[in-house]
């Protein structure tokens, strides 16, 4: 299995990548290649030009700026796992990255590629929703910032514009009183989620000041379960409320039937993953 023919180009800077996207019609950026190359081998994608962005140093690395963690789009999953900044200030991302694929894939696959790709089975889009991340995008007209909330529009469909490149992902530092959870059901190590749910809860004393419940692989794209959030926001969360919220999660699930399960099973697993993550996040937020 080899991809159909294409021309290979190396981009040396973000500007160069944008210029090359403009110069070569129907070209695609090559990041870790662990979603794109498999699709090209299956001929689901046949871009005539690949623009390799692996050589662009400015797209790599993780830095702390005040209360914000800035993650370069070309940071690999294993670099996320090893990052002391993330271990200390945003363990949710470390936890999620540990559940992505396997060690070899994590050496190549990047957070930017995972977010930009558009497979509903990718873990990072929902994590970005739960963290209320900001995406930094560069295009021919310069930089724009876009909330993760609203970026994911459908399967292989997002708000990335032509000639745009995802440069950085910005997530807030998880502070005291804020808890998180990530539950992911997989058939085996290295598999995509049957269903997954990252949750972030902010407590004010015992009261839930804010909550974000996101879902992986139970809809055409990563989604937030807003009706479920509304049940819990402003309340002292107890088991009865969690059950009500889980019912709202179930209602919002719209998965595609495949070898991982049918619609009903996957929807119930989506609700169960949310239940578990809410409990974990709550426990953590209570400290």
């Amino acid at each position: 299995m080899i991809p159909s023919e294409f021309e290979y180009h190396k981009a040396t800077s973000i500007q160069d990548a944008i210029a090359q996207l403009g110069a070569h019609e129907d070209s695609k950026l090559l990041a870790g290649g662990h979603s794109l190359l498999p699709m090209m081998k299956l001929r689901f994608a046949e871009p005539p030009h690949l623009i390799d962005i692996n050589g662009i140093e400015e797209l790599r690395g993780i830095r702390l700026e005040g209360d914000t963690i800035c993650i370069g789009a070309m940071t690999t999953e294993n670099e996320l796992i090893e990052s002391e900044i993330l271990q200390q200030h945003c363990p949710l991302l470390v936890e999620a990255a540990r559940l992505v694929a396997d060690p070899q894939v994590r050496n190549r696959g990047t957070i930017g590629g995972d977010v930009a790709h558009g497979d509903p089975g990718n873990d990072h889009p929902a994590v970005m929703l739960a963290l209320d991340a900001t995406l930094v995008l560069h295009g021919p007209d310069g930089e724009r910032q876009q909330s993760a909330n609203g970026f994911f529009l459908g399967t292989y469909w997002n708000d990335l514009q032509e000639q745009e490149i995802l440069v950085e992902l910005r997530v807030p530092v998880i502070k005291k009183g804020v808890g998180h959870g990530y539950s992911k059901l997989k058939r085996k190590t290295g598999d995509y989620a049957v269903a997954g749910s990252p949750v972030v809860i902010e407590l004010d004393g015992d009261v839930c000041r804010d909550i974000r419940i996101a879902l992986t692989n139970v809809a055409p794209m990563a989604i937030r379960a807003e009706a479920a959030e509304n049940i819990l926001r402003g309340k002292v969360i107890d088991d009865a409320l969690i059950e009500q919220a889980a019912a709202e999660v179930l209602a919002v699930c719209d998965p595609a039937e495949d070898l991982r399960g049918d619609v009903l099973y996957k929807s119930h697993m989506g609700a169960e993953m949310a239940r578990r993550s809410i409990r974990a996040a709550l426990q953590q937020a209570r400290g």
């Binding site: 299995m1 290649g33 190359l37 081998k41 060690p103 070899q104 894939v105 050496n107 190549r108 290295g190």
Partner: peptide, 24 residues
Amino acid sequence: CESSHCGACTVDLDGKSVKSCTVL
């Protein structure tokens, strides 16, 4: 597998394990 799953094609590239069926 030729599909990035089995690891039979693993090689060491610049000190990192990678699946050589999924690297150009």
